[in-house]
């Protein structure tokens, strides 16, 4: 009996040690980013390197602002990510509702097509898309990164799954009998019922667009329209040696998304795990 509980305890210690180790590995780079960003580069370049945050974060940030217009980049990223998130939520839930609850000819074929379209890599259309954007006169214009993304296959797929399982048909039929138009059914019944789904898809969309890199790199050349990621890349490319400044900028670029994630993390993780099994 005692041997059994001893081995059980040992297993439990190993179990938590492993999890804490993984957690430390996950969190450490964030911590280290701040250590470098708040020290002088020389403090990092010594052996052993600095392991606690210094007091130079603001000075490093000022240097960041001397090199790139970070506020402009932050505003651009916010405008792009917020607009995209709102429109993706609206258009994807609308289309998801149609696929989940409306009967129309070609529904299954169109849905299969939509799912298949997720397999196509963005690179395949990169060059013609660039040409289209340039013909439209949208190079160096935020519309170039917003318009192509206002509805996407993943969002529609996700919303369809969510709506089929969380909006009862009886509710929609009752609305029909009351004389609701199809759009009213969507707006008054479906939208209020899928708020948790909106939270999860909203965070996925916001993060994806905040962190997007290849497409903005191709179509947003001018400094005035750079997003945070492009500004960060330029910061890294131009001043390779000043790690402290670069990482102070990285902290600033990561902070908004970190705050948003931590605020919604609980709903987000449970939404993600539920959404995946539905």
């Amino acid at each position: 009996m005692t041997r059994l509980s001893a081995s059980f305890n040992l297993g439990r210690i190993g179990f938590y040690t492993f999890l804490i180790l993984v957690t430390a590995l996950s969190v450490f780079p964030f911590y280290w980013m701040y250590i470098i960003g708040s020290n002088v580069t020389a403090a990092i370049n010594q052996f052993p390197p600095a392991m606690i945050p210094g007091g130079r974060f603001i000075e490093n940030l000022i240097k960041v602002y001397e090199n790139v217009n970070f506020n402009r980049a932050l505003i651009n990223s916010f405008v792009v990510s917020a607009t995209l998130t709102v429109s993706v939520l609206f258009f994807c839930s609308l289309a998801g509702f149609a696929f989940a609850k409306l009967n129309f000819r070609g529904r299954n074929v169109l849905f299969a097509f939509l799912v298949g379209s997720m397999m196509v890599p963005t690179q395949l259309g990169l060059i013609p898309s660039y040409m289209i954007i340039s013909k439209l006169g949208w190079l160096d214009d935020l519309r170039a990164v917003i318009i192509p993304g206002i509805a996407n296959a993943f969002g529609i797929f996700w919303m369809r799954q969510y709506i089929s399982s969380s909006v009862p048909n009886e509710l929609l039929e009752a609305g029909r009998i009351d004389g609701c138009s199809t759009f009213r059914l969507f707006w008054n019944i479906v939208v209020p019922a899928i708020r948790p789904g909106y939270a999860t898809l909203g965070i996925i969309t916001f993060m994806g667009s905040w962190n997007d890199f290849l497409w903005p790199l191709v179509v947003l050349k001018d400094r005035s329209v750079h997003t945070v990621q492009i500004a960060l890349k330029n910061l890294n490319g131009a001043y390779y040696q000043d790690f402290s400044m670069i990482l102070a900028g990285t902290v600033l670029a990561t902070l908004p998304i970190l705050v948003i994630f931590l605020l919604f993390s609980k709903q987000f993780i449970s939404g993600l795990t539920e959404g995946a099994v539905k």
């Binding site: 780079p29 964030f30 280290w32 980013m33 993060m207 905040w210 962190n211 890199f213 945070v228 990621q229 960060l232 890349k233 890294n236 670069i246 990482l247 990285t250 670029a253 990561t254 998304i257 970190l258 994630f261």
Partner: peptide
């Protein structure tokens, strides 16, 4: 949640 650019800089 971190961007690939940030990850690449840190690593």
């Amino acid at each position: 949640i971190t961007s690939v650019v940030a990850v690449a800089i840190i690593f």
